[in-house]
């Protein structure tokens, strides 16, 4: 009896970690795609997630009275958010990164930080300072199995992230666009000589990454039912950590790193207290996560799956 109770709690923690990790993975994809091609940490990516969530919220509020059926409103809002974020991603690349492609390595890092501050405060002016309540998107049901439970929204997060990830892998490895992207990541100069329009490929990469960010923003907000102009910061940081853990520049690595980080966090928060007899508790959850990251990197300096990335010191 007791064992089964413990098992169901453990199963619940694994589920919690999977949901959290899928979100991290989805956002981490954006970091890793840009890094793979430009060797650049796009610090503003977390803010794109936030803009996606808030755009979708505004669109849904505006469409509320239009008489469209619920699912159409949700899909339309999602589409608008994706388009808005794609445009935003393109603009960020054009304004803040493209002119600095040949500049010292840290210059684009500073513009990225600048853009991040800019977007946050712009969003604060546009959407206000308050926390917005975000609708659940789907009819909310809770599914129970083995003593654990998962809501429809959480299930959707896992499925959508998995599907997008698979789609992205297919795109990169099977389409001609994907081949051009891989060529650019390998060596932009040579790719240019081979007839690849490098500028366009980089722009497309940003657009795809930002579109994924919008989806992630909407899913996160629907799951926690909150949207706020400050929500991108922590999420971006966690996703970046996940991308590095999996091996930055590697698509599958982003997803693996995300899910792993999610599991580490939820198992860490759930069991750290019991394992250390109350000496360390959930307050050390992030310490635990970072320690795992450091150990992984000390043993495998390129992250878990990041072997193929060329050195860019």
């Amino acid at each position: 009896m007791l064992v089964r109770a413990h098992l169901s709690i453990f199963l619940q923690q694994v589920l919690n970690g999977l949901v959290l990790g899928s979100v991290y993975g989805l956002v981490a994809l954006g970091y890793t795609m840009v890094y793979g091609i430009l060797g650049l940490i796009n610090f503003a990516h977390g803010e794109v997630v936030m803009v996606g969530a808030l755009c979708a919220l505004s669109a849904m509020t505006a469409l509320q009275g239009s008489g469209l059926p619920g699912f159409a409103v949700v899909l339309l809002a999602l589409l608008l958010a994706v388009l808005a974020c794609m445009a935003l991603g393109l603009a960020i690349e054009r304004i803040a990164y493209r002119p600095l492609r040949r500049a010292p390595r840290l210059a684009p890092l500073i513009t990225a930080i600048g853009i991040s501050i800019l977007l946050q405060n712009l969003a604060m002016i546009l959407w206000g300072r308050q926390y917005h309540s975000f609708p659940p998107l789907l009819p909310v049901h809770t599914l129970h199995f083995g003593g654990a439970s998962i809501s429809t929204v959480q299930l959707a997060i896992i499925l959508v992230s998995g599907a997008l990830m698979a789609g992205l892998l297919l795109l990169v490895h099977l389409s001609s666009l994907g081949r051009a992207m891989r060529a650019t990541a390998e060596n932009p100069q040579v790719a240019g000589l081979m007839g690849v329009n490098v500028d366009r490929i980089i722009a497309v990469t940003f657009a795809i990454g930002s579109g994924l960010a919008a989806v992630a923003g909407v899913l996160v907000s629907a799951n926690y039912s909150v949207a706020h102009y400050y929500m991108g910061f922590l999420l971006g940081l966690k996703a970046f950590t996940a991308a590095v853990l999996g091996g930055i520049g590697n698509l599958a690595g982003a997803m693996v790193g995300g899910v792993l980080l999610g599991l580490i966090e939820s198992i860490g928060a759930g069991y750290l207290g019991d394992l250390t007899d109350g000496f360390l508790g959930s307050n050390y959850q992030d310490v635990f996560a970072f320690l795992v990251l450091i150990i992984v990197l000390v043993l495998r300096p390129r992250g878990l799956l990041g072997e193929r990335v060329a050195e860019r010191a």
């Binding site: 923690q13 949901v19 939820s266 928060a269």
Partner: peptide, 22 residues
């Protein structure tokens, strides 16, 4: 029975709540 912690930026409390449930 337990003292759990989160942060003032967090949104996900499932892990600590599951632990409390246990």
């Amino acid at each position: 029975v337990t003292r759990e912690h989160t942060t003032n930026n967090s949104q996900d409390f499932n892990a600590i709540l599951t632990s409390i449930k246990g």
